[in-house]
């Protein structure tokens, strides 16, 4: 689209990293602070949106060769199958549970199925938003 927006591109590269980091932070902190799967996912995808705005579609796609439809599909499947996991333990659909592990580096870490569920959500959101963006901007 635009070749000469060098400043925009440079700024974008930096901004994208900031946004990405922020997105991951939001995603992880969601359980106790503002944030969560949706917001994290949306933020992450807005980083990609920025990339697409700054660079043209082809070069971004070359850099990150992903089929985002499939990303979205996998996200949805993760969310659903996390929900169905509880069926294996004879619990109701979408029963979340959490456990604490002592990991070498992180120390005592809580791992909740919620996190898995939310990661599915986030993945789904990212996949969808980028699919939409790419579809329309490619066509234009």
């Amino acid at each position: 689209m635009r070749e000469n927006d060098l400043i925009l591109q440079t700024v974008s590269k930096v901004a994208v990293f900031i946004i990405l980091t922020f997105g991951v932070y939001l995603f992880l902190s969601g359980h106790h602070n503002p944030g969560g799967g949706f917001i994290g996912g949306l933020t992450l995808s807005s980083a990609f949106v920025l990339l697409y705005l700054a660079f043209d579609v082809e070069s971004v796609n070359a850099g990150i060769p992903l089929n985002y439809k499939m990303v979205a599909a996998i996200g949805v499947l993760i969310a659903i199958f996390t929900g169905m996991g509880s069926l294996l333990f004879g619990r109701a659909f979408l029963s979340q549970s959490s456990a604490y592990f002592n990991l070498p580096v992180f120390g005592k870490t809580g791992f909740a199925t919620v996190t898995l569920f939310e990661s599915g959500i986030a993945l789904g959101v990212v996949g969808v938003v980028i699919t939409i963006m790419i579809s329309i901007s490619e066509d234009v």
Binding site: K69, M70, A73, V76, L77, I80, G83, M84, L87, G90, R91, A92, F93
Partner: peptide, 22 residues
């Protein structure tokens, strides 16, 4: 707890999403 109740809705969703890969 009647998990079976979720299936009329969940199964088509799963199948629908899975079929995306085919």
């Amino acid at each position: 707890m009647n998990n079976i109740l979720a299936f009329p809705m969940i199964l088509p969703i799963i199948a629908g999403v899975l079929l995306l890969f085919f």
